[in-house]
Design a binder for these strands. Sequence first.
DNA 1: GCCCGCATGTAACTGGTTACATGATTGT
DNA 2: ACAATCATGTAACCAGTTACATGCGGGC
Lengths: 182, 182
Amino acid sequence: MPRARQSEVAVLGALSVAPMTGYAIREAIRDVLGHFWSESFGQIYPTLAALEKDGLIERTEGGTAKASPYAITAAGESHLRELLAQPIQRTPPRDGLMLRLFFGRMTGTDRCRTLLEEVLSEARQRLAMFAALRAEIAGEEQYAQDAPYWLLTVSAGEHTARASIAWAEESLAALEAMEGKP
Amino acid sequence: MPRARQSEVAVLGALSVAPMTGYAIREAIRDVLGHFWSESFGQIYPTLAALEKDGLIERTEGGTAKASPYAITAAGESHLRELLAQPIQRTPPRDGLMLRLFFGRMTGTDRCRTLLEEVLSEARQRLAMFAALRAEIAGEEQYAQDAPYWLLTVSAGEHTARASIAWAEESLAALEAMEGKP
DNA sequence: GCCCGCATGTAACTGGTTACATGATTGT
DNA sequence: ACAATCATGTAACCAGTTACATGCGGGC
């Protein structure tokens, strides 16, 4: 039972929105899916080659002078639909932050406080980023069909970020209470 | 710049709480750290062998008749402290659920609704699990020193689960609104 | 006597990252 | 001219998973 090549879904999905070069795919994934997905060049280009070989995508003529973007084919679209219908591939969780808090007794409350303050500031940054992303998505009218789905994922990010903030603040208070009676 | 062997931290950390066999380590990780960490046997045993070779852990005599648990040494404790002090190793995000929602236009609102309902029921199960875990941690008085740190991670899980629930409910409503005017 | 849970390992595989190498355009 | 960005690739490595193999002890 081989694990599904998840990169295939992401790359094919990106091309289902608009034709793009490999480079542009990476940028799109970093900027728009960045908060829940990542792809490296070393994964994108081999995937593109494999997809083209299977006739799921094809190079388009010209476009910009520089390079020829890939476009998804009809076969590619139906393949993507199949992939998206498959059960979700959950990656086993490995959260280094939680590990450090769990074994916090070894390092003390100070280290934990530092970690939690990092969580706080990062979550706040993420919230600002999501606000910008929301505006950007609402602005691009050519993707009006996709926008409602995209906003679902942005909303997920916002909920998670707000939860992180609430949790971190609560935990910082708990740490302070701990220090009172060690 | 080789990536840190994260399994080392988890295994060494587990042994910093109490001496255990490899099998018990795996159970402990699955049952207590399960919501933010995972280890497989194929990772635990080689890690144990390497740690023993470096004198960071050692086999204890007897214990139960069946097998000899490993115990952390003084060197192991100081090594663990170093590892925990190192910057967090963040694994690049790859959330298959979000990917499916983002490209939801390809599969339609029905598929998205199914996914969100799964999120809802799983999050509710997780909340129940966390309540049980909380009780278990509070019950074991020999780990009173560790308990406050452990509860930090449980609380994180609870906040995340509640955020998932709120988000999923909101998103289900948004999907219904979308179907009104497609 | 047999099955299940405890216990320990190992070999093969693989998805994915990092780092390196290279070249064409475009702006300054 | 030259730097930065766009663009495409590949080779090496690696952590971690899956699957397989094995054996002991205790309960039924």
